[in-house]
Computed example of a mutant assay.
Amino acid sequence: MMHAHSPHPSAISLPQLFAKFLRFGLLAFGGPVAQIAMIRQALVEEEGWIPGSRFNRLLAVMQVLPGPEAHELCVHMGMVARGRIGGVLAGLGFMLPGFLLMLLCAWAYAAFIAGNAQLAGVLLGVQAAVLAIILRAVHRIGSHILVDRTLVGLAILGLLGTLAGIPFWILLAAAGAAHAFLRRPVAILGSVLLVAVAAWIGIQARGAPDAVVAHAAAPAGVLALFVAGLKGGLLTFGGAYTAIPYVREDTVGRGWLADGAFLDGVALAGLLPAPLVIFATFAGYLAGGLAGALAITAGMFLPAFAFSLLFFERLEALVDNPTLQRVLDGVAAMVVGIIAATFLELGPSTLERAPRLLPVVAIFVVAALVSWRLKGRWLPLALVGFGGAAGWLALS
Protein backbone atom coordinates (compact mmCIF):
# COMPACT_ATOMS: atom_id res chain seq x y z
CA MET A 1 0.00 0.00 0.00
CA MET A 2 1.35 3.41 -0.97
CA HIS A 3 2.07 5.89 1.84
CA ALA A 4 0.85 9.46 1.39
CA HIS A 5 4.18 10.92 2.43
CA SER A 6 6.14 8.87 -0.13
CA PRO A 7 6.11 10.52 -3.57
CA HIS A 8 5.31 8.35 -6.58
CA PRO A 9 8.30 7.99 -8.90
CA SER A 10 6.74 10.32 -11.47
CA ALA A 11 6.63 13.10 -8.84
CA ILE A 12 9.85 12.55 -6.90
CA SER A 13 12.51 15.24 -7.27
CA LEU A 14 16.15 14.41 -8.02
CA PRO A 15 17.32 15.44 -4.51
CA GLN A 16 14.54 13.30 -2.98
CA LEU A 17 15.56 10.38 -5.20
CA PHE A 18 19.21 10.63 -4.19
CA ALA A 19 18.28 10.90 -0.50
CA LYS A 20 16.00 7.86 -0.71
CA PHE A 21 18.72 5.63 -2.17
CA LEU A 22 21.33 7.11 0.16
CA ARG A 23 19.13 5.89 3.01
CA PHE A 24 19.00 2.45 1.39
CA GLY A 25 22.79 2.49 1.26
CA LEU A 26 23.05 3.38 4.96
CA LEU A 27 20.83 0.40 5.82
CA ALA A 28 22.35 -2.09 3.37
CA PHE A 29 23.60 -4.62 5.90
CA GLY A 30 23.29 -8.36 5.51
CA GLY A 31 24.30 -9.01 1.91
CA PRO A 32 22.36 -8.96 -1.37
CA VAL A 33 19.34 -10.95 -0.18
CA ALA A 34 18.64 -8.49 2.64
CA GLN A 35 19.39 -5.50 0.38
CA ILE A 36 17.02 -6.66 -2.35
CA ALA A 37 14.30 -7.44 0.19
CA MET A 38 14.62 -3.90 1.60
CA ILE A 39 14.32 -2.33 -1.87
CA ARG A 40 11.32 -4.47 -2.75
CA GLN A 41 9.54 -3.70 0.52
CA ALA A 42 9.98 0.05 0.13
CA LEU A 43 9.55 0.64 -3.61
CA VAL A 44 7.23 -2.17 -4.70
CA GLU A 45 5.09 -3.15 -1.71
CA GLU A 46 4.86 0.22 0.06
CA GLU A 47 5.18 2.82 -2.69
CA GLY A 48 4.09 0.87 -5.76
CA TRP A 49 6.75 2.10 -8.16
CA ILE A 50 6.36 -1.01 -10.33
CA PRO A 51 4.27 -4.21 -10.04
CA GLY A 52 5.77 -7.10 -8.11
CA SER A 53 5.76 -9.30 -11.22
CA ARG A 54 7.93 -6.81 -13.11
CA PHE A 55 10.30 -6.53 -10.15
CA ASN A 56 10.68 -10.32 -10.17
CA ARG A 57 11.52 -10.31 -13.88
CA LEU A 58 14.08 -7.53 -13.35
CA LEU A 59 15.66 -9.45 -10.49
CA ALA A 60 15.97 -12.56 -12.69
CA VAL A 61 17.72 -10.45 -15.34
CA MET A 62 20.11 -8.88 -12.83
CA GLN A 63 21.05 -12.27 -11.41
CA VAL A 64 22.41 -13.52 -14.74
CA LEU A 65 24.21 -10.28 -15.58
CA PRO A 66 27.59 -9.52 -14.01
CA GLY A 67 27.73 -7.07 -11.13
CA PRO A 68 26.06 -6.69 -7.70
CA GLU A 69 22.33 -7.30 -8.23
CA ALA A 70 21.14 -4.92 -5.51
CA HIS A 71 23.12 -2.03 -6.95
CA GLU A 72 21.91 -2.77 -10.48
CA LEU A 73 18.33 -2.85 -9.22
CA CYS A 74 18.82 0.57 -7.63
CA VAL A 75 20.11 2.01 -10.90
CA HIS A 76 17.18 0.49 -12.77
CA MET A 77 14.60 1.75 -10.26
CA GLY A 78 16.15 5.21 -10.40
CA MET A 79 15.67 5.18 -14.17
CA VAL A 80 12.04 4.11 -13.72
CA ALA A 81 11.56 7.25 -11.64
CA ARG A 82 13.60 9.92 -13.41
CA GLY A 83 15.35 8.51 -16.45
CA ARG A 84 19.10 8.07 -16.82
CA ILE A 85 20.05 10.91 -14.46
CA GLY A 86 17.81 9.27 -11.89
CA GLY A 87 19.61 5.96 -12.44
CA VAL A 88 22.98 7.58 -11.87
CA LEU A 89 21.83 9.34 -8.69
CA ALA A 90 20.17 6.20 -7.32
CA GLY A 91 23.29 4.10 -7.94
CA LEU A 92 25.60 6.71 -6.41
CA GLY A 93 23.36 7.12 -3.38
CA PHE A 94 23.25 3.38 -2.72
CA MET A 95 27.02 2.83 -2.99
CA LEU A 96 28.23 6.05 -1.31
CA PRO A 97 27.88 5.08 2.39
CA GLY A 98 29.72 1.78 1.96
CA PHE A 99 32.40 3.39 -0.17
CA LEU A 100 33.12 6.12 2.39
CA LEU A 101 33.12 3.66 5.28
CA MET A 102 35.49 1.33 3.44
CA LEU A 103 37.81 4.24 2.68
CA LEU A 104 37.87 5.04 6.39
CA CYS A 105 38.54 1.38 7.24
CA ALA A 106 41.35 1.16 4.68
CA TRP A 107 42.99 4.31 6.04
CA ALA A 108 42.76 3.06 9.63
CA TYR A 109 44.06 -0.35 8.61
CA ALA A 110 47.07 1.10 6.81
CA ALA A 111 47.80 3.60 9.58
CA PHE A 112 47.26 1.55 12.73
CA ILE A 113 46.67 -2.15 12.06
CA ALA A 114 48.89 -3.45 9.26
CA GLY A 115 52.24 -4.63 10.60
CA ASN A 116 51.13 -4.42 14.24
CA ALA A 117 52.60 -7.56 15.81
CA GLN A 118 50.12 -7.48 18.71
CA LEU A 119 47.23 -7.85 16.26
CA ALA A 120 48.82 -10.55 14.07
CA GLY A 121 46.92 -13.36 15.82
CA VAL A 122 43.60 -11.52 15.52
CA LEU A 123 44.11 -10.94 11.80
CA LEU A 124 45.12 -14.56 11.16
CA GLY A 125 41.98 -15.75 12.93
CA VAL A 126 39.85 -13.40 10.85
CA GLN A 127 41.53 -14.59 7.66
CA ALA A 128 40.88 -18.25 8.54
CA ALA A 129 37.20 -17.45 9.12
CA VAL A 130 36.99 -15.56 5.81
CA LEU A 131 38.45 -18.58 4.00
CA ALA A 132 35.61 -20.65 5.46
CA ILE A 133 33.08 -18.06 4.23
CA ILE A 134 34.63 -18.17 0.74
CA LEU A 135 34.49 -21.98 0.68
CA ARG A 136 30.81 -21.86 1.63
CA ALA A 137 30.23 -19.30 -1.11
CA VAL A 138 31.84 -21.63 -3.69
CA HIS A 139 29.43 -24.38 -2.66
CA ARG A 140 26.40 -22.10 -2.59
CA ILE A 141 27.14 -20.49 -5.97
CA GLY A 142 28.01 -23.83 -7.52
CA SER A 143 24.75 -25.43 -6.35
CA HIS A 144 22.82 -22.82 -8.36
CA ILE A 145 25.03 -22.75 -11.45
CA LEU A 146 26.35 -26.31 -11.91
CA VAL A 147 23.04 -27.92 -12.83
CA ASP A 148 24.36 -30.57 -15.24
CA ARG A 149 27.49 -32.63 -15.84
CA THR A 150 28.77 -30.37 -18.61
CA LEU A 151 28.76 -27.34 -16.35
CA VAL A 152 30.41 -29.35 -13.57
CA GLY A 153 33.08 -30.37 -16.06
CA LEU A 154 33.66 -26.74 -17.06
CA ALA A 155 34.07 -25.81 -13.39
CA ILE A 156 36.67 -28.57 -12.93
CA LEU A 157 38.55 -27.36 -16.01
CA GLY A 158 38.44 -23.83 -14.58
CA LEU A 159 39.93 -25.08 -11.31
CA LEU A 160 42.72 -27.05 -13.00
CA GLY A 161 43.43 -24.38 -15.60
CA THR A 162 43.74 -21.64 -12.99
CA LEU A 163 46.09 -23.73 -10.85
CA ALA A 164 48.15 -24.40 -14.00
CA GLY A 165 48.53 -20.65 -14.56
CA ILE A 166 46.31 -20.27 -17.63
CA PRO A 167 44.92 -16.70 -17.82
CA PHE A 168 41.30 -16.54 -16.72
CA TRP A 169 40.18 -14.67 -19.85
CA ILE A 170 41.20 -17.60 -22.04
CA LEU A 171 39.27 -20.01 -19.85
CA LEU A 172 36.17 -17.81 -19.77
CA ALA A 173 36.17 -17.11 -23.52
CA ALA A 174 36.63 -20.79 -24.38
CA ALA A 175 33.91 -21.90 -21.97
CA GLY A 176 31.40 -19.32 -23.15
CA ALA A 177 31.97 -20.00 -26.85
CA ALA A 178 32.00 -23.79 -26.55
CA HIS A 179 28.88 -23.91 -24.39
CA ALA A 180 27.02 -21.53 -26.71
CA PHE A 181 27.77 -23.16 -30.05
CA LEU A 182 28.41 -26.83 -29.28
CA ARG A 183 25.80 -29.23 -28.02
CA ARG A 184 27.56 -32.45 -27.02
CA PRO A 185 29.21 -32.44 -23.56
CA VAL A 186 32.34 -34.19 -24.87
CA ALA A 187 32.73 -31.60 -27.62
CA ILE A 188 32.25 -28.71 -25.18
CA LEU A 189 34.75 -29.98 -22.63
CA GLY A 190 37.21 -31.17 -25.25
CA SER A 191 37.20 -27.83 -27.05
CA VAL A 192 37.79 -25.89 -23.83
CA LEU A 193 40.57 -28.27 -22.82
CA LEU A 194 42.31 -27.97 -26.21
CA VAL A 195 42.14 -24.17 -26.16
CA ALA A 196 43.42 -24.03 -22.57
CA VAL A 197 46.32 -26.43 -23.23
CA ALA A 198 47.29 -24.60 -26.43
CA ALA A 199 47.25 -21.29 -24.59
CA TRP A 200 49.28 -22.71 -21.71
CA ILE A 201 51.91 -24.05 -24.13
CA GLY A 202 52.05 -20.70 -25.89
CA ILE A 203 52.48 -18.82 -22.63
CA GLN A 204 55.26 -21.13 -21.49
CA ALA A 205 57.03 -20.75 -24.85
CA ARG A 206 57.03 -16.96 -24.45
CA GLY A 207 58.64 -17.18 -21.04
CA ALA A 208 55.74 -16.02 -18.89
CA PRO A 209 57.58 -16.19 -15.52
CA ASP A 210 59.98 -13.42 -16.51
CA ALA A 211 57.11 -11.27 -17.67
CA VAL A 212 55.28 -11.80 -14.39
CA VAL A 213 58.32 -10.84 -12.33
CA ALA A 214 58.82 -7.67 -14.36
CA HIS A 215 55.12 -6.89 -14.05
CA ALA A 216 55.19 -7.30 -10.29
CA ALA A 217 58.03 -4.80 -9.99
CA ALA A 218 55.96 -2.02 -11.58
CA PRO A 219 54.28 0.44 -9.20
CA ALA A 220 50.51 0.45 -8.77
CA GLY A 221 49.03 2.74 -11.41
CA VAL A 222 45.61 4.37 -11.47
CA LEU A 223 44.80 2.93 -14.91
CA ALA A 224 45.90 -0.58 -13.90
CA LEU A 225 43.72 -0.44 -10.79
CA PHE A 226 40.76 0.84 -12.82
CA VAL A 227 41.18 -2.12 -15.20
CA ALA A 228 41.45 -4.49 -12.20
CA GLY A 229 38.11 -3.21 -10.92
CA LEU A 230 36.57 -3.35 -14.39
CA LYS A 231 37.52 -7.02 -14.73
CA GLY A 232 35.80 -7.78 -11.45
CA GLY A 233 32.72 -5.76 -12.38
CA LEU A 234 32.37 -7.41 -15.78
CA LEU A 235 32.99 -10.95 -14.55
CA THR A 236 31.02 -11.04 -11.30
CA PHE A 237 28.62 -13.88 -12.05
CA GLY A 238 26.55 -15.55 -9.35
CA GLY A 239 27.56 -13.33 -6.43
CA ALA A 240 30.18 -10.85 -5.33
CA TYR A 241 32.63 -13.59 -4.30
CA THR A 242 33.24 -14.24 -7.99
CA ALA A 243 35.08 -10.91 -8.21
CA ILE A 244 37.71 -12.10 -5.73
CA PRO A 245 40.00 -13.97 -8.18
CA TYR A 246 40.27 -11.08 -10.63
CA VAL A 247 40.93 -8.34 -8.10
CA ARG A 248 43.39 -10.60 -6.27
CA GLU A 249 45.25 -11.40 -9.49
CA ASP A 250 45.69 -7.73 -10.35
CA THR A 251 46.69 -6.58 -6.84
CA VAL A 252 48.20 -9.43 -4.83
CA GLY A 253 49.48 -11.00 -8.04
CA ARG A 254 51.42 -7.85 -8.88
CA GLY A 255 52.94 -7.56 -5.43
CA TRP A 256 50.91 -4.47 -4.48
CA LEU A 257 49.52 -5.99 -1.27
CA ALA A 258 49.72 -9.29 0.59
CA ASP A 259 47.15 -12.09 0.66
CA GLY A 260 46.55 -11.46 4.36
CA ALA A 261 45.65 -7.82 3.79
CA PHE A 262 43.44 -8.81 0.86
CA LEU A 263 41.48 -11.24 3.05
CA ASP A 264 41.16 -8.57 5.73
CA GLY A 265 39.52 -6.34 3.14
CA VAL A 266 37.04 -9.09 2.21
CA ALA A 267 36.23 -9.51 5.91
CA LEU A 268 35.57 -5.80 6.38
CA ALA A 269 33.39 -5.67 3.27
CA GLY A 270 31.10 -8.30 4.78
CA LEU A 271 30.52 -6.10 7.84
CA LEU A 272 29.67 -2.83 6.09
CA PRO A 273 26.37 -1.59 4.61
CA ALA A 274 27.46 -2.12 1.02
CA PRO A 275 27.68 -4.67 -1.78
CA LEU A 276 30.49 -7.11 -0.92
CA VAL A 277 32.47 -6.00 -4.00
CA ILE A 278 33.37 -2.90 -1.97
CA PHE A 279 36.40 -4.94 -0.84
CA ALA A 280 37.95 -3.65 -4.08
CA THR A 281 38.07 -0.16 -2.55
CA PHE A 282 40.16 -1.52 0.31
CA ALA A 283 42.57 -3.28 -2.06
CA GLY A 284 42.84 -0.18 -4.25
CA TYR A 285 43.61 2.06 -1.27
CA LEU A 286 46.38 -0.20 0.04
CA ALA A 287 47.83 -0.55 -3.46
CA GLY A 288 47.55 3.03 -4.68
CA GLY A 289 46.20 5.36 -1.99
CA LEU A 290 43.09 7.49 -2.46
CA ALA A 291 43.51 7.69 -6.23
CA GLY A 292 43.85 3.90 -6.41
CA ALA A 293 40.72 3.40 -4.30
CA LEU A 294 38.70 5.76 -6.51
CA ALA A 295 39.99 4.12 -9.70
CA ILE A 296 39.32 0.51 -8.74
CA THR A 297 35.89 1.38 -7.31
CA ALA A 298 34.94 3.23 -10.50
CA GLY A 299 35.95 0.20 -12.56
CA MET A 300 34.11 -2.24 -10.31
CA PHE A 301 30.79 -0.36 -10.38
CA LEU A 302 30.91 0.94 -13.96
CA PRO A 303 29.28 -2.19 -15.48
CA ALA A 304 26.49 -2.10 -12.87
CA PHE A 305 25.65 1.41 -14.07
CA ALA A 306 26.27 0.74 -17.74
CA PHE A 307 24.05 -2.29 -18.28
CA SER A 308 20.97 -0.48 -17.01
CA LEU A 309 21.82 2.92 -18.46
CA LEU A 310 22.62 1.61 -21.95
CA PHE A 311 20.18 -1.28 -22.25
CA PHE A 312 17.26 -0.07 -20.14
CA GLU A 313 14.62 -0.69 -22.82
CA ARG A 314 16.05 -4.00 -24.08
CA LEU A 315 17.50 -5.57 -20.96
CA GLU A 316 14.95 -8.32 -20.50
CA ALA A 317 14.90 -9.23 -24.21
CA LEU A 318 18.71 -9.22 -24.33
CA VAL A 319 19.08 -11.72 -21.53
CA ASP A 320 16.25 -13.88 -22.91
CA ASN A 321 18.38 -14.56 -26.00
CA PRO A 322 19.09 -18.34 -25.82
CA THR A 323 22.60 -18.13 -27.29
CA LEU A 324 23.61 -15.41 -24.85
CA GLN A 325 22.09 -17.44 -22.04
CA ARG A 326 24.30 -20.42 -22.94
CA VAL A 327 27.37 -18.15 -23.11
CA LEU A 328 26.61 -16.81 -19.63
CA ASP A 329 25.97 -20.32 -18.27
CA GLY A 330 29.33 -21.54 -19.57
CA VAL A 331 31.19 -18.53 -18.25
CA ALA A 332 29.48 -18.78 -14.85
CA ALA A 333 30.44 -22.45 -14.53
CA MET A 334 34.06 -21.64 -15.32
CA VAL A 335 34.00 -18.85 -12.74
CA VAL A 336 33.00 -21.34 -10.03
CA GLY A 337 36.15 -23.33 -10.77
CA ILE A 338 38.29 -20.18 -10.77
CA ILE A 339 37.00 -19.16 -7.33
CA ALA A 340 37.68 -22.68 -6.03
CA ALA A 341 41.25 -22.43 -7.33
CA THR A 342 41.66 -19.06 -5.64
CA PHE A 343 40.53 -20.59 -2.36
CA LEU A 344 43.14 -23.36 -2.76
CA GLU A 345 45.81 -20.70 -3.35
CA LEU A 346 44.75 -18.51 -0.42
CA GLY A 347 44.68 -21.40 2.05
CA PRO A 348 48.40 -22.30 1.93
CA SER A 349 49.28 -18.60 1.88
CA THR A 350 47.42 -18.16 5.19
CA LEU A 351 49.01 -21.24 6.74
CA GLU A 352 52.50 -20.00 5.79
CA ARG A 353 51.97 -16.89 7.93
CA ALA A 354 50.75 -18.86 10.97
CA PRO A 355 53.20 -19.39 13.86
CA ARG A 356 51.23 -22.55 14.69
CA LEU A 357 49.10 -24.46 12.21
CA LEU A 358 46.64 -26.23 14.49
CA PRO A 359 44.81 -23.12 15.83
CA VAL A 360 44.39 -21.68 12.33
CA VAL A 361 43.06 -24.98 10.96
CA ALA A 362 40.72 -25.32 13.95
CA ILE A 363 39.30 -21.80 13.44
CA PHE A 364 38.74 -22.57 9.75
CA VAL A 365 37.01 -25.90 10.46
CA VAL A 366 34.70 -24.46 13.12
CA ALA A 367 33.79 -21.46 10.93
CA ALA A 368 33.15 -23.74 7.95
CA LEU A 369 30.89 -26.06 9.97
CA VAL A 370 28.91 -23.13 11.37
CA SER A 371 28.53 -21.51 7.93
CA TRP A 372 27.11 -24.77 6.58
CA ARG A 373 24.69 -25.26 9.44
CA LEU A 374 23.39 -21.73 10.03
CA LYS A 375 22.02 -18.87 7.96
CA GLY A 376 21.25 -15.23 8.62
CA ARG A 377 22.46 -11.74 7.86
CA TRP A 378 24.38 -11.72 11.13
CA LEU A 379 26.40 -14.84 10.27
CA PRO A 380 29.41 -13.19 8.49
CA LEU A 381 29.76 -10.71 11.35
CA ALA A 382 29.59 -13.53 13.92
CA LEU A 383 32.14 -15.66 12.06
CA VAL A 384 34.58 -12.79 11.64
CA GLY A 385 34.19 -11.91 15.32
CA PHE A 386 34.73 -15.54 16.30
CA GLY A 387 37.83 -15.77 14.11
CA GLY A 388 39.34 -12.60 15.56
CA ALA A 389 38.65 -13.59 19.17
CA ALA A 390 39.90 -17.16 18.66
CA GLY A 391 43.01 -15.89 16.87
CA TRP A 392 43.74 -13.44 19.70
CA LEU A 393 43.43 -16.18 22.31
CA ALA A 394 45.33 -18.90 20.43
CA LEU A 395 47.90 -17.04 18.36
CA SER A 396 48.74 -13.73 20.08
Rank of each mutant, 00 (worst) to 15 (best):
A81Q: 06
I145M: 11
V130Y: 00
R140V: 13
G98T: 07
A81S: 03
R82M: 02
G121N: 04
V130Q: 03
H71N: 09
Y109S: 00
M102I: 08
I141R: 04
L151Y: 05
D148G: 00
T162S: 14
L157V: 02
I134T: 13
L100I: 07
W107M: 11
W107R: 14
V122W: 14
I166R: 10
L163E: 12
Q127D: 13
L131G: 13
I113P: 09
A108V: 11
A114H: 10
P97H: 07
V126L: 09
L135I: 13
D148M: 05
G86T: 13
V80Q: 15
L157R: 09
L101R: 06
L119E: 01
A70E: 13
A129K: 05
V122C: 14
A114W: 10
H144S: 08
L100T: 06
A129W: 01
L159E: 13
L100C: 09
G91R: 05
V130A: 05
L89M: 01
P97Q: 05
D148S: 00
R84A: 02
Q118F: 08
P97N: 06
Y109G: 03
A128E: 05
V75Q: 01
I134S: 02
G161H: 10
I141S: 07
V80E: 14
L104T: 14
Q127C: 10
L89P: 15
L123H: 07
I156R: 06
I113G: 04
G93P: 04
M95L: 11
G125W: 07
V152I: 15
G93K: 03
P167L: 00
Q127M: 06
Q118Y: 14
L151R: 13
V126C: 10
P167F: 00
A90C: 00
R140T: 15
L146K: 07
F112H: 12
L101M: 14
L73A: 15
A128R: 03
S143K: 12
G78S: 11
R84M: 01
G93D: 12
V80W: 12
I166K: 09
R140P: 11
A132E: 09
L104F: 13
H71L: 11
G93T: 02
L159A: 05
E72T: 11
F99C: 03
A81M: 02
M77S: 02
P167S: 01
H71F: 09
L104H: 11
I133A: 10
F99K: 06
C105W: 06
R82I: 02
A70V: 05
G153F: 14
A81K: 10
M95F: 07
L157P: 04
A120S: 13
L96R: 08
A128M: 06
A110P: 03
A117F: 10
R140Q: 15
F94L: 04
D148Y: 06
G165K: 06
A111W: 06
A111G: 05
A117T: 11
P167E: 08
I133S: 07
Q118W: 13
M102C: 00
V126D: 05
R82L: 04
I134M: 01
L131P: 09
G98I: 12
M79L: 03
M79C: 13
A128Q: 02
M102V: 02
